[in-house]
Design a protein around this nucleic acid. Sequence first.
RNA 1: AGGAGCGUAGCUCAAAGGCAGAGCACUGGGUUGUGGUCCCAGUUGUUGCGGGUUCGAUUCCCGUCGCUCCUCCCA
Length: 421
Amino acid sequence: MKYYAPKGLSDILPEEIPYWHAVEGEVRSAMSSYNYREIRTPMMEKTEVFARGVGEDTDVVSKEMYTFDDKGGRSMTLRPENTASVVRAYLEHKFFGKEELSKWYYVGPMFRYEAPQKGRSRQFHQYGAEAIGSDDPALDAELITLAIDILTSLGLEDVGLKLNSIGCPADREDYIEELVSYLEPKQEGLCADCQERLTTNPLRILDCKNETCQEIVKDGPVMTDHLCEDCQVHFDEVKSYLGELEVDYVIEPKLVRGLDYYTKTVFEVFSEDLGAQDALVGGGRYDGLVELFGGEPTPAVGFAGGIERLVLLLEELERVSHSGEGLDLYVATIDEESKKVAVKIQRELRKVGLITEVDYLGKSLQGQLGYADRYDAKYTAILGPRELEDDELTLRNMESGDQIKVSLDNYVEDIGKRITD
RNA sequence: AGGAGCGUAGCUCAAAGGCAGAGCACUGGGUUGUGGUCCCAGUUGUUGCGGGUUCGAUUCCCGUCGCUCCUCCCA
């Protein structure tokens, strides 16, 4: 074969589509119950939207962006995530003046240039929600329950919630200072990446998987001990709301997340049933992002979930039903004369909503019945010289094998009634 | 970016230097106009690509492309 889809970009084939529809359907229905409205932003932005919004030193920006120059010489980037675009759109269309709290959701493709593996591809799909305009901890809890409700309504039960607070920028500054002064004397023991991170992004050392780094970090300062009173109260309130909502969680002090814009609450929902890439949903509060883009200081919180990973789980659980996709009626024909009548009959029945098919492969009657069987046809109409002679068709119930004659004068009503029973 | 594994029929996989096979699927027949089960027959190949070793390579070697999984990070 000469042509392949580019590495990391894959086709979603017809047989997988039921899973996608199941996920997208649950997402839309949950979002709408929670009163989030859909927004669709462009699939690409000027590179600086992500570079500034997500943060220059993050993995996403520093090594995973699909960036190219357009014909006007502008640097463009396929969106690696959608929060930066949503905030850009919020400001561009001046929603701060239109509504006090903007609750939006999105579903669509994202792009990150990485080596593909299970649960990770270069084009992948996320659903996500953003609530811009409130610092109420109850809103943090709402986003978390929204994320979890989508998963449980799809039938997933073995999901866990990791929760942490990384405080406000001032808290982080204090904490980073202390972390760095704790780590500097031990610098030699850190892995090469972490020695680099010590100057670029010390927080990321916390979730380095390297064992010796973990050993060193284990006895170091903990973020949640360095929250200012405001952030501490907020964190406590989030936990208290989650308690009220009976949501189980684990406090994960080392959860810092890969994007620079987060403040206060951060969380991750994961599954034990996935491979190495087990994060299903990630999110948190980003009180500084609107201001970073030039708006008034505006608190906000959101999350994003990966559809591919959900589909993987649903396929393993076989939770999605494939029934109801068969044909209502197959119209089998014997000769050219009957085929001409068959296409007219088929069109009339399709107009009333039946799923029908005729033979386009020149199959024998036997072959046509085999085809009807394979595609789970409820009924097969048989049309040949004998039927045309009497101005009727033979209607075969494919389950029982019973056959009756139906007049060509009122077949639409007659057949329609039998099939919808 | 690094590590490991795998590329043979439409699909799932055998053949381990000596005639490229099986199951499923597909087509026809048993049924001159009737599916599912059954029986019979038939079709299907640049063994990913290029080179090397050999009398002979799907098999061994080198290269290359592709896929998959893993490390890192994340959705």
